[in-house]
Write a protein that binds this DNA or RNA. Structure first.
Length: 654
RNA sequence: GGGCCCGUAGCUCAAACGGAUAGAGCAUCGGAUUUCUAAUCCGAGGGUUGCAGGUUCGAUUCCUGCCGGGCCUACCA
């Protein structure tokens, strides 16, 4: 509702400026006044117009306020300060619309959206860095779905890369395991933990003797080529680890629709199709001299030089095809992204891979697969949730699309970039890692899968559940253990998801158990608890928490209860509740889910203050009680909604 | 060397296109509970927004330079 009124206000102001001053402003800036007493919207545009109109800002503001006329849904406009125009909405009207959950129609862009996230190398257990990726990605999916978009969720699986080859080297060369032994291991619980340790050992083994790197090269070639025993073992191992990753993410209610794998990008010759187009389009150039002689190269994204591709200096070149004829990962990524936009002219085979407990199927790519399958790819917009370190590679893919003339696609390609999760030195020490003096002085230390340095995702989730369970056990001894465990899990997931979302994407998270395990203050459980309290009011009162019997407050009653100081205070709660879809729009437009986390916290905070100040069931005045109940119903509904978009559920009790 | 990001309270972070008195949480100190559950609420202290210039009616935000930190800059992915 809030965003609907904002648009109407902007439209009226725009019309007025055109009519009165013959001015066309592309953007009408609309803000929020510092306090709700001053109104619901603030327009600083008089300052901006002062120069153009050669008048004092106050004078312009006066003219606008006097001349704009009535606007549906608004009480009036007011002049404030040195030239602000504050708009007051008709509180009762907005509240009535909110109480009945009115949803003004919105225009949606055409076409499907594809979100790629997680994309964890299937050679070891997932860690906290992967959790940030998956939680950001999954939340963005939910944001888009809330806004009404159709979304494909993809998780790219690099099952033929160096990292998988390394762990296979571990099985075959270090441990000299037979296929039967590996098959046995794969069936053990948390097989990904085994790989975590083995992968770290392989890295050490390489460092002991550079000769050992020979095994990596041979193994990688065998895995890429396919159709041999090594590749078959690699498939066995990477598939088992992948399954573990899906299980881990499912604990957080994160699901995928499709898992495109690099093995199919290779074996279905996606690259050949892309290569032909890239050569024909002049995007790639065969270097004939210098360091990159014999390689097909393209302009590196961000290269300053404006020279032709053929004349680029070495440092501005990005090697796409090596001199031995093999293609690097950026090349494969270009082909994959042409497929995403339906520009490649080839498709994967598909088969079902994993069924979630709720019955949803996750598909995987294959050579020749099922005839009957959902249609993936061929979308109009994509978001790639990939950490900031890969910005240049992502931009190179975008430039390749542009170079081929696919500007429409390039314009709708968003690198959803976020910073890494690192460990505080204290956290690293707690985990038993030996730190150099240099490391001890740092603000954070980067997680490293190669060194086996990090916090594993399942370990963190287990710790959170155990910590929540202690609290739940102490508070709800009458419940069964299974019930207490389920509540603890919901709290743990709420805490973890909120923790990963409360930071803006550009902020490095310096991970610390103390903070992550907190259930108080600005946390997920704080917001969950507010909903549980709201629900309790209805339960104790024998009422429907949906607020069906509370939605019958008349406009006149709303007007009465929203006046005065108390009215302002409760109005602020309603106003904040009305902003959920507005905030969600902002999150999508800026690709920043943290705004929603802040919003949910703010709403929960206002509710807790309200809850403390107004005893509702004890309210003697029936009309006022009905109004207070309507307040709780609306706030509860919006809070449940906002949390659901963040993938956070509400426990029955806390 | 070049490119990108960051620097805000003791700590961890906010502040949408430049806007009204820079806000939260944690920590510290002081209060609130026979109540719709205290995983809560109220209050207090805590800031030269890294430094120096510039643009502007107005700068944490934009521009330039400097200081400090991180990442990228492989015929790895």
């Amino acid at each position: 509702m809030y965003r609907h009124l904002e648009r109407r206000l902007a439209q009226h102001v725009r019309d007025f400026l055109r009519r009165t001053y013959d001015l066309d402003l592309p953007r009408i800036v609309i803000e929020q006044p510092p306090t709700v007493e001053l109104g619901e919207y603030a327009l600083p545009l008089a300052f901006e117009l002062a120069k153009k109109l050669r008048k004092a800002p106050r004078k312009i503001a006066e003219e606008i306020v006097a001349g704009i006329g009535p606007i549906e849904g608004f009480e009036k406009l007011e002049l404030a300060g040195a030239g602000y125009i504050n708009a007051r909405v008709k509180r009762a009207d907005l509240a009535a619309a909110l109480a009945e959950d009115a949803k003004p129609p919105v225009q949606l862009p055409e076409g499907k959206v594809l979100v790629e996230h997680s994309s964890i190398n299937p050679n070891k257990a997932a860690h906290i860095g992967h959790l940030r990726n998956a939680i950001l990605g999954d939340t963005f999916v939910r944001l888009l779905q809330f806004a009404g978009r159709e979304v494909d969720v993809q998780n790219y699986i690099d099952n033929t890369g160096v990292q998988v080859a390394d762990v296979i080297v571990g099985f075959l060369h270090l441990e000299k395991k037979s296929r039967a032994e590996i098959e046995e291991l794969v069936r053990a619980p948390r097989f990904d933990y085994y790989c975590w340790d083995l992968y770290a050992r392989v890295s050490q083994w390489y460092e002991q003797d550079k000769q050992n790197l020979q095994a990596r090269t041979e193994t990688l070639h065998a895995v890429e080529a396919g159709g041999n025993e090594t590749a078959s073992v690699a498939d066995l191992v990477s598939t088992a680890v992948l399954r573990r990753h899906l299980e881990t993410m499912d604990r957080l209610d994160i699901e995928y629709d499709f898992l495109p794998r690099e093995s199919e990008i290779l074996h279905l010759h996606f690259w050949d199709a892309a290569f032909t187009k890239l050569k024909a389009g002049g995007v790639l150039f065969l270097e004939t001299k210098g360091k990159n002689k014999g390689c097909w190269v393209m302009r590196r994204a961000g290269a300053v030089s404006t020279a032709d591709t053929a004349e680029l200096a070495e440092e501005d070149q990005k090697v796409i095809v090596r001199s031995n004829g093999t293609v690097g990962y950026v090349g494969k990524d270009i082909a994959y992204h042409m497929w995403k936009f339906g520009l490649l002219g080839r498709d994967f085979g598909y088969r079902k891979f994993y069924r979630y407990p709720n019955g949803h199927d996750c598909w995987v790519s294959t050579g020749t697969g099922a005839l009957d399958h959902p249609h993936f790819g061929d979308v109009s917009e994509i978001y790639n949730v990939i950490d900031a370190r890969q910005a240049e590679a992502q931009n190179t893919v975008i430039e390749a699309l542009r170079g081929l003339g696919y500007n429409e696609a390039a314009d709708h390609y968003t690198h959803f970039s976020y910073e890494m999760v690192a460990l505080t030195p204290r956290c690293a020490a707690e985990l038993g890692y030996e730190l150099s003096d240099d490391d001890k002085a740092r603000a954070w230390i980067e997680v490293s899968g190669r060194k086996g340095f990090g916090v594993k995702a399942d370990d963190l989730i287990d710790t959170l559940i155990a910590s929540a369970k202690k609290e739940v056990d102490a508070r709800h001894a009458q419940l069964s253990d299974a019930e207490r465990l389920q509540i603890s899990t919901q709290i743990a997931v709420g805490a973890l998801r909120y923790f990963m979302l409360k930071f803006t994407k550009s902020s490095v998270i310096a991970f610390d158990f103390k903070e992550a395990l907190s259930f108080e203050g600005e946390t997920g459980p704080y917001a969950q608890y507010a909903v549980v309290r709201a629900t309790n009011i209805f339960r104790k009162g024998g009422l429907d928490p949906g607020g069906g019997d509370a939605a019958s407050v008349s406009t006149a009653e709303f007007e009465r209860y929203f006046s005065g100081e108390t009215g302002n205070e409760i109005w602020e709660l309603w106003l904040t509740a009305s902003k959920t879809s507005y905030i969600i729009d902002q999150c999508i437009a800026t690709a920043e889910p943290a705004y929603l986390a802040k919003h949910a916290f703010q709403l929960a905070q206002l509710f807790n203050t309200f809850y403390h100040r107004y005893p509702i069931l004890a309210e003697a005045d029936e009309g006022r009680k009905k109004f207070l109940l309507a307040t709780v119903a609306v706030v509860r509904r919006e809070l449940v909604r906002a949390l659901a978009v963040m993938g956070i559920r509400i426990p029955p009790v806390m």
